[in-house]
Amino acid sequence: MPRRNPKKPETCPVARSVDVVGDRWSLLIVRDVFDGMHRFGDFQRSLGVARNILSDRLRRLVDAGILQTRPASDGTAYQEYVLTPKGESLFPVVVALRQWGERHLFAQGEHHSLLIDRKNKQPIAYMAPQAGDGNVLMPSETEVQKL
C-alpha cells in the first residue's frame, strides 16, 4: 500500500495515526502480537499475507517504533517481533475496533472470538469516551479544538 507523502505535515492526529497503522496488515500484525505471536512465519500463517508485504509492514512498524526485534526466546537464529511501549499503547485502539466489530458485523448468535479479563474470566467492559465526571460522552457532546 503506497504511503502518502504530504507536502506539509498533517495537523490531524487521526490522519497521522492512519498513515502509520491504518492499513489492514499493520493492524492485524499488531493484533497478532497482542495475541502472543512474535515470528515472521507465525504472522504469515495467521494472516495469509505475501512474504514481501509482511516484510514491508513489519519493517514499517519497527521504523515507527511500534515493534522492535529481539533474538528468539528459544535460542534459535530467528528473531522475534515484540511491542514497544508505543506499540502497547495501541491496545485500546485494537479493543475499540474489536468491540465495534462485535456489535455491528456479526449476526445475533454468530460465533466470534471474545476478549476476556484473565483474572475473572469475564468479557471486558465496553469502551466508551468519558467526561471528567465518568459519564459516557456522545459525539454531539464533543468538539475538535484546533490549536
Results as ranks from 00 to 15, higher is better:
residue 1 M to R: 13
residue 5 N to M: 08
residue 7 K to E: 15
residue 8 K to M: 08
residue 13 P to I: 06
residue 14 V to K: 03
residue 14 V to N: 01
residue 17 S to D: 10
residue 18 V to F: 12
residue 19 D to Y: 08
residue 25 W to D: 12
residue 26 S to N: 09
residue 27 L to D: 06
residue 28 L to G: 02
residue 30 V to P: 06
residue 30 V to C: 11
residue 31 R to I: 09
residue 33 V to S: 02
residue 33 V to H: 01
residue 35 D to Q: 11
residue 37 M to P: 00
residue 37 M to T: 04
residue 41 G to P: 01
residue 43 F to V: 08
residue 45 R to N: 12
residue 45 R to K: 15
residue 47 L to D: 03
residue 49 V to S: 01
residue 51 R to I: 06
residue 51 R to H: 10
residue 52 N to M: 07
residue 54 L to F: 06
residue 55 S to D: 06
residue 55 S to C: 05
residue 57 R to I: 02
residue 59 R to E: 14
residue 59 R to I: 02
residue 59 R to T: 12
residue 60 R to F: 09
residue 60 R to P: 00
residue 61 L to C: 03
residue 64 A to E: 09
residue 64 A to I: 05
residue 65 G to F: 02
residue 65 G to E: 04
residue 66 I to S: 07
residue 67 L to D: 00
residue 68 Q to E: 13
residue 72 A to R: 01
residue 74 D to F: 07
residue 74 D to Y: 05
residue 75 G to D: 05
residue 76 T to L: 00
residue 76 T to F: 00
residue 80 E to F: 04
residue 82 V to M: 04
residue 83 L to W: 07
residue 85 P to Y: 11
residue 86 K to A: 13
residue 87 G to S: 03
residue 87 G to K: 02
residue 88 E to C: 07
residue 89 S to G: 08
residue 89 S to R: 10
residue 89 S to Q: 11
residue 89 S to H: 09
residue 90 L to D: 05
residue 91 F to T: 12
residue 93 V to S: 01
residue 96 A to N: 05
residue 96 A to G: 04
residue 96 A to P: 00
residue 96 A to C: 04
residue 97 L to K: 02
residue 97 L to F: 11
residue 98 R to V: 00
residue 104 H to T: 07
residue 104 H to A: 05
residue 105 L to V: 02
residue 106 F to I: 01
residue 107 A to P: 02
residue 107 A to W: 05
residue 108 Q to S: 12
residue 108 Q to M: 11
residue 108 Q to V: 14
residue 109 G to I: 05
residue 111 H to K: 15
residue 114 L to R: 12
residue 117 D to R: 07
residue 118 R to Y: 11
residue 118 R to Q: 14
residue 118 R to W: 11
residue 120 N to G: 06
residue 122 Q to A: 14
residue 122 Q to E: 15
residue 131 A to V: 02
residue 131 A to R: 13
residue 132 G to D: 15
residue 132 G to Q: 15
residue 133 D to A: 12
residue 133 D to G: 12
residue 135 N to I: 01
residue 135 N to F: 04
residue 136 V to Y: 06
residue 138 M to V: 10
residue 138 M to A: 15
residue 139 P to I: 03
residue 141 E to W: 01
residue 141 E to K: 03
residue 142 T to R: 10
residue 142 T to I: 10
residue 145 Q to L: 11
